[in-house]
Nucleic acid binder design. Structure first.
Length: 238
DNA sequence: GACCAGGCACATC
DNA sequence: GATGTGCATGGT
């Protein structure tokens, strides 16, 4: 048996490393898919986002920041009752009035500023017509949304996926917690790293992304709580 | 009454 | 660039 030259040895080492990476990647893909199947069987179709129009979804995405959805619904109902669920009218309304109406969703002063910032952007860039905003290509629009004060990654992605039907995976606190508890990610993974995990291992399918995020939120609410209820959780076996 | 909820920007080190 | 802090209501 003859010995290998250093380049040959390095080549073999790289091949092993590559194969090992591929194996790891397939394992993650399989885990993400089996999680999806289990949760999908358990919860069924969830038909997210609970909003009647792309504009209402965008407003909801801002109002739900760090806030229970029940409270957001109250705020949206108030805006509807005041006939303000329209970009033009909401932008023109006094801050005090908007704050009063969205009060149930918490952080109402901050969120009024954030809503107005988004509305200003929507108006100046797209004449206040949200359908026109969604005509933009995904990466460019995401960048623009992220430049609006008050719109971070999760809010931008929620607007893009649920409002615009764009293929982006939405990562939230529940996603992070569930994946961390199942050892799929470490605690220090960034938003982008977690999003990449889903987007490189799953097909870029809007329906899949929509349903998967909704499933994770439901799982988080019911089982993967700060005080976990693993015994009852459909994911307990994996 | 404490804890939690479908984040984000900003100050400080 | 990591870490801490303010923003606030309503449900459990």
């Amino acid at each position: 048996m003859h010995s290998l030259s250093p380049p040959q040895a390095a080549g073999i080492a790289l091949t092993y490393q590559f194969k090992s990476e591929m194996k790891k990647s397939r394992k993650i893909a399989n885990r993400l898919l089996s999680m999806y199947e289990i949760l999908n069987d358990y919860f069924g179709d969830l038909n997210w986002w609970p909003g009647e129009s792309p504009f209402e979804i965008a407003v909801g995405a801002i109002l739900t920041q760090n806030t229970n959805w029940i409270n957001v619904e109250k705020a949206i109902t108030n805006l509807k009752s005041a006939n303000l669920l329209s970009p033009g009218r909401l932008l023109k309304e006094k801050d005090d009035t908007v704050s009063r109406l969205i009060r149930p969703s918490g952080y109402y002063n901050v969120k009024t500023r954030r809503l107005k910032a988004f509305l200003g952007f929507l108006t100046s860039e797209y004449g206040g017509i949200i359908a026109r905003m969604f005509e933009e290509e995904l990466p460019a629009l995401r960048e623009k949304l992220l430049r609006v004060k008050g719109i971070g990654e999760e809010t931008a992605d929620s607007i893009l996926l649920y409002g615009g039907g764009k293929p982006v995976f939405v990562v939230d606190a529940y996603t992070r917690r569930i994946l961390a508890r199942h050892g799929i990610i470490d605690d220090d993974y960034s938003y982008g790293e977690i999003q990449d995990l889903f987007m490189t291992h799953l097909a870029p399918d809007i329906t899949l992304y929509n349903q998967y995020h909704a499933l994770l939120v439901n799982t988080g609410k019911q089982f993967c709580r700060p005080e976990p209820r693993c015994k009852e959780c459909p994911l307990k076996e994996i």
